[in-house]
Simulated assay, not measured.
Amino acid sequence: MVAMKYEELDARKMSILKAIIDDYIASVEPVGSRTIAKKYDMGLSSATIRNEMADLEEMGYLSQPHTSAGRIPSDKGYRLYVDKLMDPNEPVLKPTQEDLEAIRDFMQRRIHELNQMVRAASEIVSRITHYTAIGMAGSVKKHAIKALQILSLDIRKLLVVVVLDNDIIKNQIVKLSQPLLPEELSRLSVICANLLTGNKADEITAEIINDIIALSGIDRERVLPIVEGILECIKQCDSAEIYTEGTANLLEHPEFNNLSKAKTLLELLNKEEELAKLLHSCEDGGAKGIVIRIGTENELLEVSDCSVITATYSVDGINLGTIGVIGPTRMDYGKVISALEYVRKRLLSE
């Protein structure tokens, strides 16, 4: 989790702050001192609670959206809540009967492909939490070329076929500015196979490419697009697929009634590269593989008003995948964390 220094808060201030955050998460309404005095048995008067709330606001844990309104938690308040105030042993995950049936279905499916397992798990997390979930299968290793061939489709169009070391076959169409003679194509295909087999994308150096050009006797302008096609085949397998589940859940939360804010986040959810960056940034650290980023702690501007909770699942040091949950900073943190932990147990028992 993100490290933060806190001012020393006494037990009374901590209890009041926890009550305010719990109430605000449930009600979405600014919380006043009378509400806390009535709903929580603290043995304190409304005036005493109001004074403590004023101190918490001055210390940056609360804010007051309107002069006449109650207080709402700040990012700093949520961070203290997550780090110090949540009861880790409190059973907050209460799936509905429909949720339980979906979970049973997930457990009964014989899912052998890691990508599909992560996708199914993301769907379950989204269903249980009612937030948007994003999943990314872990890349166990970068893949090397096992075999390759270059075939002619027409006078200016080639098909590059690459078999990778995981036996996945990828292909890429390459367009040429100048055609290759049949004997040139045959020679180039053999040379590329000899020099590139066994190499990963980042091992195909300029020196190897220069050797291909020299041995084939074909000019650089015609060879380079073919090498780029080969590299693209490898990268297609190396790049992690991103799965987004429960996008419509965003609209259930009043924070996203603002069309501009909702549009910004929905656009982000369609950018796989940005989502991959978001999940990769959360892969390291965190208790039990859980990382919580609140508001402005997030590196991406588009989620600076959101909280992102991610769990990275691994076995024997091998990264199986990462699942993240995106929602308002007024997120039910306990519920999301317990859902991710619950799915972790299911994933690792498959």
Results as ranks from 00 to 15, higher is better:
residue 98 E to L: 12
residue 124 I to H: 02
residue 29 E to W: 07
residue 182 P to Y: 05
residue 310 T to Q: 06
residue 273 E to T: 12
residue 14 M to V: 11
residue 41 D to G: 08
residue 96 T to Q: 09
residue 229 G to P: 00
residue 333 Y to L: 05
residue 274 E to N: 09
residue 294 I to H: 01
residue 213 I to Q: 03
residue 5 K to I: 04
residue 160 V to G: 01
residue 39 K to Q: 09
residue 347 L to G: 06
residue 124 I to T: 12
residue 180 L to S: 03
residue 323 I to H: 01
residue 117 M to F: 11
residue 239 S to W: 15
residue 50 R to Q: 12
residue 232 E to Q: 11
residue 263 K to L: 05
residue 258 N to V: 08
residue 65 P to V: 07
residue 229 G to I: 02
residue 88 P to N: 07
residue 42 M to N: 05
residue 199 N to E: 07
residue 244 T to G: 07
residue 240 A to E: 08
residue 335 K to M: 11
residue 124 I to M: 08
residue 7 E to N: 07
residue 150 I to E: 00
residue 268 L to E: 06
residue 289 G to W: 08
residue 313 Y to R: 06
residue 67 T to R: 08
residue 291 V to W: 00
residue 272 E to W: 06
residue 159 L to C: 11
residue 85 L to E: 06
residue 54 A to P: 04
residue 20 I to P: 01
residue 200 K to H: 10
residue 284 D to Q: 15
residue 339 A to P: 01
residue 193 A to L: 01
residue 323 I to R: 01
residue 241 E to V: 08
residue 303 V to Y: 11
residue 155 I to W: 13
residue 36 I to S: 03
residue 10 D to V: 06
residue 294 I to N: 00
residue 246 G to N: 01
residue 252 E to M: 13
residue 105 D to S: 10
residue 14 M to D: 15
residue 240 A to R: 13
residue 214 A to H: 12
residue 257 N to E: 06
residue 108 Q to C: 05
residue 144 A to I: 07
residue 176 L to N: 03
residue 225 P to I: 02
residue 123 E to Y: 13
residue 164 L to D: 02
residue 280 H to S: 15
residue 175 K to I: 08
residue 219 D to V: 14
residue 287 A to N: 14
residue 185 L to C: 03
residue 174 V to Q: 02
residue 235 K to W: 06
residue 301 L to W: 15
residue 120 A to M: 03
residue 350 E to K: 15
residue 345 K to P: 00
residue 177 S to Y: 00
residue 41 D to L: 05
residue 316 D to G: 14
residue 170 K to M: 10
residue 327 G to V: 03
residue 288 K to V: 04
residue 157 K to S: 14
residue 307 S to Y: 09
residue 314 S to P: 04
residue 74 S to K: 14
residue 175 K to D: 11
residue 112 H to C: 04
residue 134 I to R: 01
residue 50 R to C: 07
residue 278 L to Y: 05
residue 223 V to L: 12
residue 223 V to I: 15
residue 251 L to Q: 14
residue 185 L to T: 03
residue 135 G to V: 02
residue 209 I to D: 02
residue 283 E to G: 08
residue 279 L to P: 04
residue 278 L to W: 05
residue 200 K to D: 02
residue 42 M to F: 15
residue 240 A to S: 15
residue 172 Q to K: 12
residue 347 L to T: 13
residue 182 P to Q: 06
residue 257 N to H: 10
residue 323 I to Y: 03
residue 8 E to T: 09
residue 50 R to P: 02
residue 48 T to R: 11
residue 145 I to R: 05
residue 311 A to W: 01
residue 106 F to G: 05
residue 253 H to T: 01
residue 153 L to G: 04
residue 111 I to E: 10
residue 340 L to M: 10
residue 52 E to C: 04
residue 258 N to T: 07
residue 277 K to V: 11
residue 210 N to L: 09
residue 186 S to K: 12
residue 95 P to Y: 02
residue 140 V to Q: 12
residue 131 Y to T: 01
residue 237 C to D: 13
residue 191 I to S: 00
residue 142 K to I: 11
residue 210 N to T: 09
residue 136 M to G: 05
residue 281 S to C: 09
residue 75 D to L: 12
residue 255 E to H: 14
residue 137 A to L: 02
residue 19 A to Q: 05
residue 58 E to Y: 14
residue 176 L to P: 02
residue 84 K to V: 12
residue 173 I to W: 02
residue 122 S to Y: 00
residue 138 G to K: 11
residue 37 A to V: 01
residue 194 N to D: 11
residue 8 E to I: 08
residue 139 S to V: 10
residue 55 D to Y: 13
residue 68 S to K: 10
residue 45 S to N: 05
residue 192 C to W: 01
residue 215 L to W: 15
